[in-house]
Amino acid sequence: MTNADDQARIELEAAAFRRLRDHLRQRTDVQNIDLMNLAGFCRNCLANWYREAAEERGETMTKDEAREHVYGMPYEEWRARHQTEATPTAQASFAARPPE
């Protein structure tokens, strides 16, 4: 793979990540517990992966900074605006398959 091919791949992957992030910002009706139950990851997972990638590059990033990048606002603000109480069914499903 050439450097140009590698750069194009990186740019495409970054664009796909931004689109996923932006989609999740718009879909505030979809709760993190629902994402975890269906897909095994949520917005917080994306933030953790983003922070880990920054740290692999030698950059310092806090959990709150990474979450704000994913959520588009401070995490506590997003929770106050959009998070709802998880249903007993969602809680039971999550408990049956806790995150790794």
Rank of each mutant, 00 (worst) to 15 (best):
E56H: 12
A66R: 09
A92C: 04
W78K: 12
R19L: 01
T89F: 02
D29S: 04
D29E: 00
G40P: 05
D5G: 13
R57Q: 14
I10A: 07
R18Q: 10
A80H: 14
R43I: 04
T2P: 04
T89V: 06
Y50H: 13
Y71W: 11
T89L: 05
D5L: 10
F41R: 03
F41P: 00
D34A: 12
E100P: 12
F94H: 05
A47L: 07
A80W: 04
L24H: 04
E85Q: 15
V70C: 09
N37Y: 00
D22C: 02
G58K: 08
N44W: 09
N37A: 08
E65G: 07
E56M: 11
M1T: 13
P88G: 14
E85D: 12
H82G: 12
D34W: 00
A66L: 01
G72H: 09
F94V: 04
T87Q: 11
A14N: 13
A90G: 07
A8D: 15
Q31M: 09
M1G: 11
A54W: 10
A54C: 15
A96M: 02
E77G: 06
E59S: 10
H23E: 10
A39W: 00
L24M: 07
R25V: 02
A39E: 08
M61V: 15
R43N: 10
P74R: 14
L12T: 15
R21S: 01
C45F: 01
R97N: 10
M1A: 12
R81I: 13
H69S: 15
A66D: 09
A95F: 00
T62F: 02
A8F: 04
M73W: 03
N37I: 03
H69C: 10
A86Y: 06
A39H: 06
R97V: 06
L38R: 14
T62G: 07
Q7D: 12
I10N: 10
D29V: 04
T60L: 07
H69W: 13
V70L: 09
E13Y: 10
Q91I: 03
G72Y: 10
R51V: 06
D64F: 08
T89E: 15
A16Q: 13
L24Y: 06
Q7N: 09
R19S: 07
I33H: 01
R27A: 05
A15W: 00
E11G: 01
F41G: 02
V70S: 08
Y50C: 03
N32Y: 02
A4G: 05
W78A: 14
A86D: 11
E77D: 13
P99R: 10
H23V: 01
M1F: 04
P74D: 11
Q26M: 08
E55K: 15
R97L: 04
A90T: 05
R18D: 12
E52H: 11
L12Y: 03
F41I: 08
G40Q: 02
E85I: 07
A15K: 01
L20C: 03
N37D: 12
P98L: 08
E11Y: 03
